[in-house]
């Protein structure tokens, strides 16, 4: 499964839609895919600028949770909207959509970031991890398990973002103290106010990860 190609999103057979290969190949905007391949084999020919006109969909290769997806995106599409609406990965939540609440937190190349403030085109060539990607087969991953055991939520809406922020923190600092946990989780808001339990869950998750 990992690194396999997801056929549902392979758009090669989807005729009639305006599309072009994008960014994987460095091409002048007005040149078609076939010509682009030629241009690549003759590097002096093409200006080294990749661009995409407003409103124009382009085919983007996204690696999410180890699977390669090909999706049509336009310049203004955020990673958040592509994950949810094109890939059906609705674990990542829209909250404020302006980088304040943290509900949309994902890992990009292993580092926690806000997917609402990331253009999908900016995730080109990077590895994206969402809350769905933390599962270990049918079992919850250590951070998810710790959140359940410590009852680290009430309504649960912010939880996927909290879990991803914790995952990012623990990858960077596997044994954080309470102060480091509070600091590391400060980019995620919880309107239910489950913070005390969240901090305990992150501490427990650190232990679960070590015991693995």
């Amino acid at each position: 499964m990992a690194d396999g190609k997801d056929d549902r999103n392979d758009l090669d057979t989807n005729g009639g839609v305006s599309r072009r290969g994008f960014l994987g190949s460095v091409v002048p905007a007005a040149v078609g895919v076939a010509v682009a391949r030629e241009a690549l084999s003759a590097p002096a020919a093409a200006p080294a600028v990749a661009e995409l006109p407003a409103g124009e969909p382009a085919k983007l290769t996204l690696v999410v949770n180890g699977r390669t997806h090909k999706v049509l995106v336009e310049p203004r599409d955020t990673l958040l909207s592509v994950l949810r609406e094109k890939l059906g990965l609705t674990g990542t939540k829209p909250g404020c959509e302006r980088g304040e609440c943290g509900a949309c937190t994902v890992l990009i190349d292993g580092v926690a970031r806000y997917s609402c403030l990331t253009l999908a085109l900016e995730a080109d060539g990077k590895k994206v991890t969402t809350v769905e990607g933390l599962m270990e087969g049918e079992e919850l991953g250590p951070v998810q398990k710790a959140f359940v055991e410590e009852d680290a939520f009430q309504c649960g809406y912010c939880t996927p973002g909290q879990v991803m922020a914790a995952e990012g923190l623990l990858r960077e600092n596997p044994e954080p103290g309470l102060d480091e946990i509070r600091h590391g989780m400060s980019g995620n808001l919880c309107r239910c106010g489950a913070y005390a339990h969240i901090f305990k869950a992150v501490d427990k998750a650190a232990r679960f990860r070590k015991e693995r």
């Binding site: 460095v26 080294a48 600028v49 990749a50 661009e51 006109p53 407003a54 403030l117």
Partner: peptide, 30 residues
């Protein structure tokens, strides 16, 4: 809102792209 997206590969290309009317620089984008 809709916009054109440009990703230059060199600083001189960036300078050219940013000199266009209505161009905005995206670093982290936040």
């Amino acid at each position: 809102p809709s916009f054109r997206y440009v990703r230059p590969r060199t600083v001189s290309e960036a300078v050219k792209a940013l000199a266009a009317e209505g161009a905005r620089a995206h670093a982290g984008g936040t």
